[in-house]
Design a protein around this nucleic acid. Sequence first.
DNA 1: ATAAACCTGACTAAAATAGTCAAGTATGAA
DNA 2: TTCATACTTGACTATTTTAGTCAGGTTTAT
Lengths: 141, 141
Amino acid sequence: MKLTSKGRYAVMALADLAKFDNINPVSLRDISLRQGISLDYLEQIFSKLRKNEIVQSVRGTQGGYILKKKAKDIKLTNIFDAIDEKVKTVQCKKESKKSCNGKSTKCLTHNLWDELENHINNFFKEKSLEDLVKDNIERRI
Amino acid sequence: MKLTSKGRYAVMALADLAKFDNINPVSLRDISLRQGISLDYLEQIFSKLRKNEIVQSVRGTQGGYILKKKAKDIKLTNIFDAIDEKVKTVQCKKESKKSCNGKSTKCLTHNLWDELENHINNFFKEKSLEDLVKDNIERRI
DNA sequence: ATAAACCTGACTAAAATAGTCAAGTATGAA
DNA sequence: TTCATACTTGACTATTTTAGTCAGGTTTAT
Ligand code: FES
Ligand code: FES
């Protein structure tokens, strides 16, 4: 059970963006250098973040990205949804009435994994980008 | 972020074992048939469960496995530890002072992932095999 | 004896991940 | 206008992980 780099990078990059977000947009190049993430990979990630209205791009010289909403209103769950980083604990299709082993009733553990999925998603629903930035400021003092 | 089949199978097999655990040991063959899990794969999993004292083996004809502790005292966390199914959310080595991107201080998101890891592990520490079996009995009524 | 069932280690196909690479397009500034 | 910067897109690929399979045992109740 592990988090992928894509998810980690997306949040890390947005945290960086939120931190350095003044009047000027932040270039992916800067984020790449500061956070040590491949520029090409960042571009893939930000393409999805833009399509899902988490960030807004500013083209041209001195261009870059800015947050499209307030940091307070961007929850981790929005970020993960945007980049297709899903929490998947059950094996079966949830809607289908078939169990993961092909039988007609749900398997012995189905409910358990479903509970786990909710437990994890609750965490993502609560945490916002703002929480993250605040935590970093506090640590620095 | 997903659960592996190994983890899923281990818990499913132990739930089956707890459910059918009478005086007689339960053979992997039976579990394999009932739960639709490859016998060879089950053997790998049970080898670890035995070494970690979750189950006890009974060799010979009519042999099989029995739980080594009460279902109440077997938490999911014990099972996952036994089979090396780890929850890994941070990228860096926790002990090391280096961050995941090679810098000397922890990255912007380190604390967040660490919180998430605790959040998930708390779930595993609370749930026992007994909870699982109970849930299934209730559903059946 | 023999068959059932545990036990072990090595091997491998398939899938997912974590990127790289190439070839653009748009725009602000000199 | 020209140029550099930076976004944009899509295809490609090496690496790693996963989810098993396979072969060859050993133990023990009957
Ligand atoms: S996980 Fe849904 S039926 Fe097994
Ligand atoms: S996850 Fe620990 S430093 Fe980045």
